[in-house]
Every structure is written in C-alpha cells, then in structure tokens.
Design a protein around this nucleic acid. Structure first.
Lengths: 196, 196
DNA sequence: CGACAAAGTGAACATTATGTTCTAAAGTGA
DNA sequence: TCACTTTAGAACATAATGTTCACTTTGTCG
C-alpha cells in the first residue's frame, strides 16, 4: 500500500524530524522554532536535515500533506457510500472535526495569537480544497451566474476555518458532532443559495 | 479632531517608514522584507527605525491600525444613520469591500501563496472584530443555546475573509456592490439562524 | 530669534540563524 | 560480504537582528 522508500534510514530520519517539529509546535508555536531546535530534539545532524528538507517550512508542509491525504481519503469514501445529496457535505465535515479533535493539542498551539500564521494559511488552503470538491460536486455542472461556485467555496471554507479555530481553542462547549451540526446549519443555506 | 503629536519629525519618519513598507509589500510580499530594506527605501537611519518600532511586524500593525480605525468609524456612523435591522450588516460590509478595492494593489500582493501569512492573520482578526460588533448588536441580548453568537461571528467573518481574498485577487468579475450583495446573501441566513 | 530638548545619523558590535561543504563513520540492501 | 547511500559533526560564509554611542540636525516654545 505505502510507497517503498527502500532505505529505512530515510524514513526513520524523516519521522524523527516530523515528530520533533510537532512536539516543538506544541511548546512554542511554529514561527519561534529554529532548525537547530528541531535537529536537537530529533537528534539528527544538521547536514542531514538539509539533505531532506529545504527549510522548516518544507518540513511542515510535508507533514501536513499526510493530513491532507487522510482527509481526502475519507472524503472519497464518503462520496461513494453516502447517498443523499445533502449528506455529502456532512460526511466530509464530520471527519474534519473528528480529526481536529484528535490533534487538538497541536491545533491549540497553532491558534496562538501571532505564532502559526503560516500553518493557519496552509490549513485554510486544505479546507478550501476539500470544500471545493464537495461544493462543486453538489452544485453540479449548472454554474449559476448570480453566485459563482468558487465564491461560495471560499465563503464556506472561510467559515469552516473560523469555526474550527474557535472550536479548537476550546471556547465552545461542544462535541465534534455538535459543532459539525452547527457548521452544516450555517453553511447549507449558502450552498443552497449558490445552487438555486 | 486628530491627536496632536507635537513633533512633525516623528510623524514624518513614521510616515516614511509606513510608505516604504507598503511599497515593499507590493513588490515582494511581507515576509521577504528585511528591516534594512525598509530603512533603505525610507532613507531613514537604522537606530531611528528601532526608536519607533520594535520590528517590522510592529510597523505593520501600526499601519493596519489606521485601517481598523477607519473601518470602525464607518461602522459607527452606519449604525447611527441606517434604520432597518438587516441593513446594518450591509452598511459595514459595503465599506469594507470599497476599502479593499481602494487598496487592491496591496491586497493582491498580500494574497500571494506563502508571503503575507501574518498580514492575512491580522486582517482576519480585524474582520472578526467588525463582524462581531454587528452580529452581537443584531442578535441582541437573547443568546441562543443552539447557536452561540461567537460561533456565528467566526463563521461569518471567516466567510467574509475568504470571499474578500478571492475578490481581491481579481478572480471574480464583480464590482464592490455586487460582491457585497453576494456576501450578504450568503451570510444573512447564518446570522438569521443564530437569532432564531 | 534663539536656546534647548528631542529626534535622527551612521557606524560599530554582539548575537543568532541560515544553508553549504567536507571527511570519516555507520547502516542498508542485494 | 561488499558496494553504495546516508548520517554525523564541525567548520564556514553570509545575512539579519537589535543595541549602543558620539555626534549632528531639527522643531518647539518662551
């Protein structure tokens, strides 16, 4: 299933670096981290780091790619199994909130005022891509002149992002199911407006 | 009306620095700029820069504070003049899109993939604050248990942000009036859902 | 006007991070 | 086992940051 990398030293090193980055993000947020911090924590040589990644941002996106792939997978499965046309958005968002709940520690660290602006940007983009697939599939081919679907996508994804960050911060006393239901209640009218 | 700063050298220097930052942002985005770049462009001494601002981020937020204040002002006036309860949200957002249109060059520079993550974060926050004032005023005191108003705020502000960035990029062939109308059409159901 | 306080200059400096390069040593797959 | 790849670790060049200081210029206010 997974792609063969054929040298386990590579996998090991990359895993160590990703894990180190993760734990450091929880501690001090992303922007405050130096490459030195990462390789110290990972116990990996400096040259080794640069043999694998261009810089710390590169390492970060390589990690988020895992998240992105996982979410895309869930989305794809949901598209196959669920039938009702307005259950599809649910299936995707539910998985997203569940994922956030799982990585809540990292999320909370990223939400901090200044630190983590880049991560937020990347997450926002991931959400945009996910929402786009769902919305475009739902709206279908009949593009509406009064509400361009891409505008709806950006609106809904932005809303999802805002809501997610608030929820991840723990400011809402809600379960993943509840916040997901709330999201759908807020977002569905917008999607409907686009498809009208 | 304006606060007296009493020494025009200070104003002059700060204006020069802000203008330099602005023009540099249009060129290379925010993150790629160094303090050296700024003081070269502004033709201001290094020590002088640090006498006024802690770092380039400090300079940036001091500039955005102007924008924030202007928008808040417009919002306050709109609250006084407009009557209909669902025209208030319009009044605020219309001004926002007009502002974006005016500074479209800077906005477009900020939207670039990687550079400008911090600015985006700050803008997002400004929008959240503006939306909060409007939504909380509209929802009134009767807080709803099924839809916490702060959740609605974050959702709507996130949507506004996403839509604004898309529009600022020029990907929508719309006037400020049109995109504003679209925003309201997408957002109003969410606000209504909260007040129900 | 003119004195004086406030602001700006520019260079030097300590510090910190970045990304590259090189050689020896260790791990891996066939 | 052996050829090949990866890693360690240190040394380096470069670049940016923020501070300090002695000195000059500029506005403000009496």
């Amino acid at each position: 299933m997974a792609v063969r990398k054929s040298d386990r030293r590579v996998q090991r090193t990359q895993e160590l670096l990703r894990a180190a980055l993760l734990s450091l993000i929880e501690q001090k947020g992303f922007e405050a981290i130096s490459v030195q911090n990462i390789i110290d924590r990972a116990n990996v040589g400096r040259a080794t780091f640069y043999a694998h990644f261009d810089n710390k941002e590169d390492l970060l996106v390589s990690g988020l790619d895992g998240l992105r792939a996982a979410l895309k997978d869930h989305q794809r499965q949901a598209h196959l199994h669920r039938g009702g046309s307005d259950e599809r958005l649910l299936a995707f968002s539910h998985e997203m909130f569940a994922h956030i709940a799982e990585y809540r520690d990292v999320f909370r660290a990223m939400v901090g005022k200044r630190s983590g602006a880049l991560i937020q940007q990347l997450l926002h983009k991931i959400m945009v891509d996910l929402v786009r697939d769902d919305v475009k599939a739902m709206v279908g081919q009949r593009e509406n002149k009064s509400a361009p679907s891409e505008a709806v996508v950006q609106f809904v994804a932005g809303g999802l992002f805002g809501l997610s960050m608030l929820w991840a911060e723990g400011k809402l006393r809600m379960s993943a199911e509840e916040v997901n239901a709330l999201f759908r209640r807020l977002a569905m009218p917008a999607v409907t407006a686009a498809a009208r």
